[in-house]
Amino acid sequence: MTNASTNSTVPGALDDVAVLMPAFNGQADVERTLASFAEDAPIHVLIVDDGSTPPIVAPQLTGMNVEILRMPQNGGIERALKAGIDALAARGFRYAARIDAGDLTVPGRLAKQRAYLEAHAGVAALGMWAQVVTRTGAPLFMLSPPADPAAIRRLRFVRSPFVHPSMMLRIDAVQAVGNYRVAYRAAEDLDLFLRLMERYDCANLPEQGLFYEINEGGISATKRRRQIVSTLKLQLRYFNAANPYDWLGLAKNLLHFVTPYGMLQRVKRVLYAPRAGG
């Protein structure tokens, strides 16, 4: 499996990396997402089937080794991700590359992220930019969080610091800070990143690594109020009164609480739409 846009890598170069995908139903989305991966080395995948009916079946894809970890019942993404991290650690993997069913990856993403983490030992989590698209693939806007760890810490609450399905995580660091938790439902990613940033750096590669699908059945839509409440709790726990962006982030999240989801999506399309000549 080759890709002209990435540097050549030797076979086995991704042996310590595993794609981590939680899934609840959506067999077709699982297959479409995994088929989007293209690397110069074999790819390992762990699907955490969170009680799907019927159970998720591992796709047969050239150059890809897919394993399924089945949860005994549907317990939510937080428990599925925790179980996935623990399973990958037990299998000896060093890095977990997140993606969600329905999203598509950019070819060569895994090699780029692994190379960066190998060169930056103090970075525990690395994200990339994401093109937000509709279910039919139509582009909406680009999510381009800051790359620098200091900027990410400063702006962590005023804008999303990472696109969760674009992340590559050091598994030992994730376990060292307590793994994914259910304490902040629907905001398990922000909870983890804030704990990681207390002990490590976290960064973004300033280039697109993902096509992020807006799904009206996804967590941001169906569990939005719970997500906002969890985010507010995290903002209050980590609030730094000396950082003006923490104040701005708090005000922004309170505004989200009273603003309909559809209106927020329309505002994002205007704010993040490509500018002429930009």
Results as ranks from 00 to 15, higher is better:
S5V: 12
G127P: 01
A130E: 04
I171E: 12
Y238T: 06
S160R: 10
G127V: 00
I152Y: 04
I68H: 03
I214A: 05
R91H: 13
L140Y: 07
D40C: 14
V270N: 00
R32D: 11
E39S: 07
R153T: 08
V270M: 04
V17P: 01
L194N: 03
P42C: 14
A186R: 07
P22D: 03
S220H: 11
R195N: 09
E207L: 11
P161K: 04
V270C: 08
L140F: 05
P165F: 08
L205I: 13
P54Y: 10
Y184E: 02
A130M: 10
A87V: 06
T2H: 15
M168P: 00
A80N: 06
R226T: 14
R79Y: 01
E118M: 13
I85Q: 08
E188M: 02
V10G: 06
F257D: 12
D191N: 10
R135P: 00
Q235K: 07
I47H: 01
Q131L: 13
I214S: 08
P55L: 05
A28N: 11
A41Y: 00
D103V: 01
L126E: 06
D201R: 09
A83I: 04
I85P: 02
K233S: 10
D201T: 10
N215F: 12
K223R: 14
I99Q: 00
N74C: 11
A115R: 15
Y116H: 11
M21E: 02
N240P: 06
P260E: 05
A97E: 11
A125T: 04
I219L: 13
L14V: 03
A96E: 11
E207Q: 15
Q60C: 04
N243H: 11
D86H: 13
W129R: 00
G51I: 03
L34T: 03
R135M: 14
G277F: 14
S220W: 08
G277L: 14
D86L: 11
P274H: 09
V174H: 08
F193M: 04
S144R: 09
D16S: 13
V106R: 01
V174G: 07
A23K: 00
M64Y: 08
L190W: 02
L14C: 06
K268H: 11
F24E: 04
A28D: 14
D148G: 04
Y95S: 07
P55Q: 00
G84N: 05
H44D: 15
A124K: 05
Y184D: 01
N243D: 12
W129T: 00
G249D: 04
L250I: 07
L190Y: 08
R98Y: 13
E213R: 03
Q265H: 06
